[in-house]
């Protein structure tokens, strides 16, 4: 069974980002970039499936400029078998990514697409769902446990009410949540081996996909600064404030 793992290069989660002065977006120049943490979890899960003898090959795919190779090398160092870079200078939005992934799926014929539920830069949480829709495949999102047997995946999903268990037949798209696993550290020997693993480069044109953005950014703003709180003397006062000032009850 082949598993496709899309991995996104994002600003490292430790970095405090800043908005560009013209409010056109986030200033990422010179910032430390890493693999989207949810995608790391997806990669780890794919490797565990391979270690259990369920998956036979793991293909990591990333999209964007040539620097995404670093992210792919990270996936290869963790244990992916080969990698595909879809190289483009165009800003990629979730629908474009989903279309490109659909084209990759057509080439690679994976039984499972395992991906992060969202990327920590735009927090869209759309690509997996769009991809499943475009492919006409079942989807299981927010996975915190995945079991694969008899051509189907049993997935524990993290939903507001608790854990929902569903069973989807393969091929399927599964998006993973934070508690699914704890990604491993790549070992030095594997980092060295990763350099020798195959990494193919494709373009949106070669895949027959037009990645032009469909959404325009109007303005990017920092969230308003938190105001200082007040101490209330009693529950009654709290309830009154929630009613009159906050207007939430």
């Amino acid at each position: 069974m082949r598993v496709l793992v899309p991995v996104k290069r994002v600003v490292d989660y430790n970095v405090k980002i800043r908005i560009k002065s013209d409010q056109s977006g986030v200033d990422i120049a010179g910032l430390k970039m890493s693999m989207n943490p949810f995608d790391e979890i997806a990669t780890e899960e794919a490797i565990r499936l391979k270690e259990r003898g369920i998956a036979t090959e793991i293909v990591a795919v990333s999209m964007g400029d040539a620097k995404c190779q670093e992210t792919l090398r990270t996936a290869l160092a963790m244990g992916a078998d080969r990698a595909i870079l879809v190289e483009t200078a165009v800003e990629l939005q979730p629908l474009a990514v989903a279309k490109l992934l659909k084209a990759i799926v057509a080439r690679e014929q994976p039984s499972l697409v395992l991906m992060g539920k969202q990327a920590i830069d735009d927090d869209s949480n759309q690509t997996a769902q769009m991809l499943a829709g475009l492919l006409g495949w079942p989807q299981a999102t927010f996975a915190s446990k995945i079991e694969i047997a008899d051509g189907a995946a049993t997935v524990a999903r993290e939903v507001d009410e608790g854990i929902e268990r569903i069973r989807v037949r393969l091929p399927a798209v599964v998006s993973v949540d934070l508690r699914l696993n704890e990604p491993r550290y790549a070992s030095l020997p594997n980092i060295m081996k990763a350099k020798k693993k195959p990494l193919d480069t494709l373009t949106p044109e070669a895949l027959g996909v037009d990645p032009t953005p469909r959404l325009d950014y109007v303005r990017v703003e920092e969230p308003p600064k938190r105001k200082a709180g007040v101490k209330v003397a009693s529950v009654q006062e709290l309830v009154a404030k929630l009613k009159t000032e906050a207007g939430v009850i």
Partner: peptide
Amino acid sequence: AHATPDLLDAALEEAGKF
């Protein structure tokens, strides 16, 4: 010859994380 800058960079990154 195998100690190329990109390899050492990747290894430093992982070592830093650990």
